[in-house]
Simulated assay, not measured.
Amino acid sequence: MFLTLLDFDLENPSNSDHPFCFTYKVLLKLNPDTDEYEYLLFNCLFGIIECMDMLKKTNFPEYEKWKVRLVKNTKSVGLYGDIYELYIHWSLVRKNISFLKSERPDFTINWKGLNVFIECGSAQFDFNKIPSEKEVFRKLKSVIRINFTSGYLNTSTALFIDITNLMFHLSDFDANILSRALSAVDLELKRNPSNTLNEPGAITFMNFELIKNSSSQKYACSVTGSFLNPNVDPNLKSFLEENFIGGIEKPIVIKPKFNH
């Protein structure tokens, strides 16, 4: 399927340095009955194929762009940022939402006749690093701060951030770390104001997880926490509540078992 949809051969030695091949080699050594096998299979391989197959059927030009982008990105940290953005792209298509793929912000969405926007980001450490809890907190603040000072966010824009990697590295994940990081960044920026400071209308943190119960299991990207700016564009608030954050005022946070 990788060869068909991505023109990428997982068994070609010339591709051995690509994260896709690394994951494939790890899978070959794992027991297929384990949770880790299932997670890696869906998060790093089959999930991508499902997204790309839908894009190929619904928007071939965008499919072609994503195919080139995923194959060219040979850095694990960068690739998983791309996978997260691809997942959001796939989610919008699956929900039959009218949108345009753009750059900065990543998605321009027509919602009830008006435009709202999504910018995607991810907070990750290189896979060979085991960060301390202080480093995790600093990384989270850094990702928020970079986006706040990017110059293109506004109250009609939602900032979506994948924090799977950070959650994995925290020994005891507490959702309060998200609000603490936001407060810390807000205080720092007020002390050292920037001419390009632009706060988004909302920030939504997400994480990838393999969710299991007694009768089934599924691979999903879940909302870890969401924060609305008091000045949020009402149309953006409506879009988020109807499509992404409805009913998650008190989300149940499960620490990811595996890194990505």
Rank of each mutant, 00 (worst) to 15 (best):
L5G: 08
F239E: 00
E209D: 11
F125I: 11
T164F: 02
L236C: 14
L41S: 13
L3P: 00
K112H: 14
V93H: 07
F148C: 04
V223W: 01
R145C: 12
S183Y: 01
E11Q: 11
N115S: 15
Y84L: 04
F107H: 12
W66R: 10
L240W: 00
I248Q: 09
K72C: 07
P105T: 03
H169C: 03
P256R: 12
T196H: 08
P32R: 13
L210A: 11
N195C: 08
T4V: 13
L41H: 04
S214M: 06
P230V: 12
L70R: 10
L92V: 03
M206N: 01
L86C: 07
K255A: 14
N12V: 04
F117V: 10
V68S: 08
P131M: 08
R104F: 05
N31L: 01
L45F: 02
M206E: 00
V253E: 07
D126R: 12
I163E: 03
F208P: 00
E62L: 15
H169N: 06
V185D: 02
L170D: 12
A181Q: 06
S14E: 13
L27S: 05
N235H: 02
L189H: 07
H260A: 10
S216P: 00
S222P: 00
G246Y: 02
K25S: 15
N128F: 06
I163G: 02
Y219G: 03
T155L: 15
R138F: 12
